[in-house]
Computed example of a mutant assay.
Amino acid sequence: MTQHAPLIIDIAGLSLTKADRRRLKHPLTGGIILFGRNWKDRQQLTDLCADIKRIRHDLLICVDHEGGRVQRFKTDGFTHLPPMRALGALWMKDQLGATNAATACGYVLGAELRACGVDFSFTPVLDLDFEVGAPTQAQALAAPRGGAVSLGRPGASRSSVIGDRAFGRDPRVVSLLAKSLMHGLLQSGMANCGKHFPGHGFVKADSHTDIPVDKRSLKAILADDAAPYEWLNTTLSSVMPAHVIYPKVDARPAGFSSKWLNFILRSQLGFGGAIFSDDLSMAGARLIDGQEVSYAQAAVAALNAGCDMVLLCNQSVGDGQPVDELLDGMAEALLKGQWEAMESGELRRLALLPQSKACGWDELMVQPAYMHALGLIP
């Protein structure tokens, strides 16, 4: 059995350095996440991905590529995908058309990435868009034509870090559009990742720079924000929890909480896929139980809470010492029995690798399914 390789790391530049190669060969490294700084053009990206796979064919090459403002590759032929809120707006006018558009977005997203050698994108966002004064889609559709529409929850504030990345406010609409988008990803041969469990849309603070706190009850969260995770439990390949504290459930952020990940997500909501931590370098991951933690300590806490994989992003820039410290710290913690290499976690990681061969870019450009999908994207 292959040793559990839970760490997803990044690289600083357009090609692999000697240090990058050493880190990617480490038995605890399971994948790499790419950013805009790793992009010059399609040929460079394709060469980079091929080089990564030559080091280890089982490394999972990931990217945050949702559409809208979170899309790492936007030039040299890559389709500019709309923010997910645009699909929610289309739903208000044409429900079936919106589901077809969502499927088309998923297919184009996955097919273009795979044509360049990328295996996986952290999408779709399942967070709800809590905008002050905005009706839910259900409220809007139920209102008589020309009549008044009751407003959304009083006092709710939209998360600036989520905003138009969300499909909308209504968890039923979010689930239907997300399932359609995931169907398109599946058609392209790519797995999916629902984020940020149980929901990041209600809090205003950005977990990149702060530690958001959501004081609602578990009952309220399960009935609203977390509902898509139960409805999509047969469709989701993976889930990424939020670096948000929900104090009425647990004093720890969700990504470090066994109660959230094992008891609620897996046992109560029926999710059986892989769980990624969010970026361990974010402010929301640097304090656990009121104590400042190292990256290795955060990684161990996440794995022990139920994560299968942990991400450390943007720490390879410069000498990359934080990445080396994390690798060394996790290896030492494993030897000391502070976390356990789980066969189940490794199998869930491997299941995210594409199972079909991707077609090249030129072949994709004339593929009828791809050309049809392009015409459906709003």
Rank of each mutant, 00 (worst) to 15 (best):
residue 7 L to E: 02
residue 15 S to T: 14
residue 18 K to F: 11
residue 22 R to P: 07
residue 32 I to N: 06
residue 40 K to H: 05
residue 40 K to D: 03
residue 41 D to F: 09
residue 42 R to C: 06
residue 52 I to W: 07
residue 60 L to N: 10
residue 62 C to R: 03
residue 69 R to W: 12
residue 71 Q to W: 02
residue 72 R to T: 00
residue 73 F to H: 08
residue 81 L to Y: 01
residue 100 N to A: 15
residue 100 N to W: 13
residue 109 L to S: 12
residue 109 L to G: 04
residue 110 G to Y: 05
residue 111 A to S: 15
residue 111 A to G: 15
residue 113 L to H: 02
residue 118 V to N: 02
residue 119 D to V: 03
residue 133 G to W: 10
residue 138 A to G: 05
residue 146 G to Q: 07
residue 153 R to S: 07
residue 156 A to M: 07
residue 170 D to M: 13
residue 170 D to A: 12
residue 191 A to F: 05
residue 197 F to V: 04
residue 198 P to F: 02
residue 201 G to Y: 08
residue 202 F to L: 07
residue 203 V to H: 03
residue 231 W to I: 12
residue 242 A to E: 08
residue 253 P to K: 04
residue 255 G to C: 09
residue 256 F to V: 05
residue 256 F to K: 04
residue 259 K to W: 08
residue 261 L to V: 00
residue 262 N to E: 14
residue 265 L to M: 05
residue 267 S to A: 14
residue 270 G to R: 03
residue 273 G to D: 10
residue 275 I to F: 03
residue 275 I to D: 01
residue 277 S to A: 02
residue 280 L to V: 08
residue 282 M to E: 04
residue 282 M to N: 04
residue 289 D to A: 11
residue 290 G to Y: 06
residue 300 V to F: 02
residue 307 C to E: 07
residue 307 C to V: 05
residue 309 M to L: 13
residue 312 L to E: 03
residue 313 C to I: 06
residue 318 G to I: 03
residue 322 P to E: 12
residue 323 V to S: 09
residue 330 M to Q: 09
residue 332 E to D: 13
residue 337 G to A: 08
residue 340 E to Q: 15
residue 341 A to S: 15
residue 356 S to F: 09
residue 359 C to D: 08
residue 359 C to N: 09
residue 361 W to L: 10
residue 365 M to E: 14
residue 365 M to I: 12
residue 368 P to C: 12
